[in-house]
Design a protein around this nucleic acid. Structure first.
Lengths: 200, 200
DNA sequence: TTGACATCAGAACGTTCGTTCTTTAGGATG
DNA sequence: CATCCTAAAGAACGAACGTTCTGATGTCAA
């Protein structure tokens, strides 16, 4: 990943204006409208600016030729410091990445739903009471996936497993029993992400 | 919060396609391009669809007449089903809420940074290797907070605790030792959120 | 079986857009 | 003090775009 800054401070200002505009309107407007945004009067110069911003990776174009922001455009820095939760190690630097939480977690918005987790039967998998599960709705899953299953009309979050040729739902907490569905086991969706909010 | 759904299921499908498109390209394309996205051939019908989606609050227009998504466009359904990770309980339905992940996790963007977690010393707190920690940068914290501390110039994620009047950093994994800083204990930030992505 | 309505298709048209080219102004360089 | 470069302005043009209208289906109820 090329780490590039706008070639000069003027372009950085234009980028900032564009980012502010995008934050408001969630789209990149036409050259004519960008003239106002940038405070200049020349469409061709707007194009020149965007061409340069493209070169350094802040915008790109769709196959239709429409300008769109890149990941780098959304400057929420993924910190260059890796936090060792194990032993403290030296900070190794040099690599900056950018990161949009929504993008990371959600590939297909229309198939994705969020479900708050109740209870602690998945504690062993690091899923706590009150966490929000990011679920991609589909009815097929692999053994080992954590799934939201519908057992006898009830929803439950468990690890999908197989035992003697039959699917079972395994909690990740020894205080809870393994669920061995008698009828059909219907999968509501698969866990693709997890979000936790700490209160202060 | 106005709960408005697309008037009919067909419009809901079009909305879903538009949301998926936007997730990819971060812009709403021209009517012509939307024809392909929606799988129809009529620009005028595309406009009719967007007019209806505007009426129920999923898109709006800039002063220039450009279509842009609204907040509701990004909100994901916080599913009406509470998933019991404990024992299965009955589904209670009827109430739908919306929810924007970024908004939930991040209060002050400029003070917030994301840091990938390395290692498993916080496993007991449900923080796994590879999780992304949402850190609010500040240098004061309370006992019991999970903090990113700088110990001898090195970053580490631990629970802040006090022992005989001195601050210590406690891992949430018995395989790791408690850190008792000799010099000063500098707090880089406090853990306010956690994001995990499951790979498939 | 007829009419109303929803769901699209297609054409027509004036406007806007992106692109390219030429020109201008000012500062730096030599 | 000529000339080079950067930073724009401005005009010209065809293609693309949004809008509006008219038609063509299919469906359902009266």
């Amino acid at each position: 990943m090329a780490e590039s800054n706008p070639a000069n401070t003027r372009d950085a200002e234009y980028l900032a204006k564009l980012q502010d505009y995008y934050a408001n309107w969630k789209s990149i407007p036409s050259y004519a409208a960008l003239c106002e945004v940038f405070g200049i009067a020349s469409k061709s110069w707007v194009k020149a600016i965007l061409d340069r911003l493209e070169k350094v990776g802040f915008v790109e174009r769709t196959p239709d030729g429409m300008w769109i922001p890149t990941r780098q455009f959304f400057a929420r820095p993924l910190s260059d410091v890796s936090v060792p939760a194990g032993m403290p190690v030296m900070v190794n630097d040099t690599h900056t990445d950018y990161f949009v939480i929504d993008d990371m977690l959600i590939d297909a918005p229309s198939k994705t739903t969020l479900i708050p987790v109740k209870g602690d039967s998945m504690l062993g998998a690091g899923i706590h009471d009150g966490d929000v599960a990011v679920i991609e709705k589909r009815n097929l899953a692999n053994v080992g996936d954590i799934v939201v299953a519908i057992v006898d009309g009830e929803f439950t979050l468990k690890t999908l497993d197989k035992e003697r040729g039959k699917f079972i739902l395994r909690p990740e907490n020894q205080a809870y029993p393994v669920i061995r569905p008698e009828g059909t086991l219907e999968i509501f969706g698969v866990l693709i992400g997890l979000v936790r909010k700490y209160k202060h």
